[in-house]
Design a protein around this nucleic acid. Structure first.
Length: 285
DNA sequence: ACTACTCCCTGCCAGC
DNA sequence: TGCTGGCAGGGAGTAG
């Protein structure tokens, strides 16, 4: 369930191998993931040099010389792994991680660094909720998958005023609103749940109740902005330190004591918009 | 415009 | 032990 922190971790992991590298060959091993691969997908990428690896919300963006941009979404179960030629053992051979689900290796990027080192960057996705788009430079900024996204939660532009504007007049729950990528880009079920707990806000609360009648942020919006930033930054830092996922405070902790200091509540699980929400009915208001 | 619901797909796990 | 059914969730599509 890659959300913003996981996608950012993937980006940082791929960056040293991909930035500045040339794509020697691309294998798409099936006709589609969630959607059919773009027409002439492999052909259009072959020979290109990757100038930058970016991220927007939960999307990875791979920028090529000459303008094309490969947009990649990891869906629910997508991941990349890197296999590097290790000449100290068998010349030209590749080190293989033990991967019993090689049947879900759907795309292989064969790349060559500026120094000539060869690597394979392999996209694996058992559930195939992931997808790739290959856009021309002029299409990239206009494509609906990116233009509909709300602000980056770690950007300065994401402040109480911006969030209040996005939440104003929304009749849906706070939980559902925050998971909507048009409100803020990159939060998913887990980090919404964690941020709401940290901000002590009820996931069931109507989103518009955080906004004054004139459209300005109530104090809770400031706390929510801080909580979202803290949760995401801590997750990214922890993944960098430990290489692992995060121990969540409330997600998947139904029936356990609320971790808020001094709170004697118990974490409950409810379903909102078809997805599990975990929260403390005592301290989240 | 807004909201709510379904579907896609596979791996995993509880229950029988 | 093996089978079944339910659940997990991001985003697109659709109905109201």
């Amino acid at each position: 369930m890659p959300e913003l922190p996981e996608v950012e971790t993937v980006r940082r992991g791929l960056q040293p191998v991909l930035e500045g590298a040339r794509i020697v060959r691309v294998e798409a091993r099936r006709p589609d993931l969630r959607f059919p691969f773009p027409v002439k997908f492999a052909q259009r990428l072959t020979g290109k040099t990757i100038t930058a690896l970016g991220r927007r919300a939960k999307y990875l963006t791979m920028h090529m010389d000459g303008g094309p941009v490969l947009i990649c979404h990891l869906g629910m179960s997508g991941s990349f792994r890197i296999e590097t030629a290790d000449d100290s053992e068998t010349p030209g051979a590749f080190h293989h991680e033990r991967s019993k689900d090689a049947k879900h290796d759907h795309v292989v990027f064969h790349v060559s660094s500026q120094a000539g080192a060869r690597s394979r960057v392999i996209f694996n996705d058992p559930r195939r909720f992931g997808f790739m788009l290959l856009l021309k430079a002029d299409e990239h900024a206009k494509h609906k998958s990116l233009t509909r996204l709300g602000p980056e939660p770690l950007d300065e532009a994401f402040d109480a005023r911006a969030l209040a504007t996005a939440l104003a007049r929304r009749k849906t729950s706070l939980k559902t609103a925050l998971a909507d990528q048009r409100v803020v880009g990159g939060l998913g079920n887990i980090y919404v749940v964690e941020a709401l707990h940290r901000a002590r806000l009820s996931p069931k609360r109507r989103a518009s109740t955080l906004v004054t009648s004139s459209g300005g942020p109530r104090p809770a919006v400031y706390e929510l902005v801080d909580a979202i930033g803290d949760v995401l930054k801590e997750a990214i830092a922890r993944q960098r330190r430990t290489g692992k996922g995060n121990p969540f405070r409330v997600y998947d902790h139904e029936g356990e004591p609320c971790p808020t200091r001094g709170c004697r509540g118990t974490i409950r699980r409810i379903i909102q918009a078809g997805r599990s929400t975990y929260y403390c009915p005592v301290c989240q208001r």
